[in-house]
Amino acid sequence: MKHLSTITVFSQNTPGVLYRIADLFLRRKINIESLTVSEIELPGQSRFTITVRADGDLVEKVVKQLYRIIEVSKVVDSLDHELIFKELSFIKVHTKDAAARHELERLAQMSGAKITYVTGRFLVIEKAGTEEEINNIYQLLKPYGIKEFVRSGRIAVFKE
């Protein structure tokens, strides 16, 4: 059965690792839903947070194959309840007039989002949250006319 997995990969921060990781998913025909990479608390180490929707068995096999990558030191496959996770999104929305702007400001506040940039024609709303929360605010804002929408992909830390 397909389900959402968050795969956290710790590796040395050297060129080529991303390529090898992506290739493993590609070969197994697993579509990567999101991927974020950054340096972490240990110097020279990076942390990949990858979300995929796939069969648990297949994910387990890929996790083991990820260990074949020389630079990879640790791989953890987690379910949502084992993680604190979030992503960040920017939503640029049209504002026809002052009334629309006010309404959007209210909606943003209600949804726990921030207005980060305002012009006469549009404003940029910044929302951090789970994928679901971001989808919700997107749906709320859609009727106003969305000019641009971007999300960062998930980052996560372990509860344990």
């Binding site: 080529g16 390529y19 090898r20 290739d23 070969r27 074949r68 020389i70």
Partner: peptide, 13 residues
């Protein structure tokens, strides 16, 4: 060469 050989090497550099 790195791109071409990545999927078929244990390691490349």
């Amino acid at each position: 060469v790195i791109g071409v050989t990545t999927p078929i090497t244990k390691w490349n550099y």
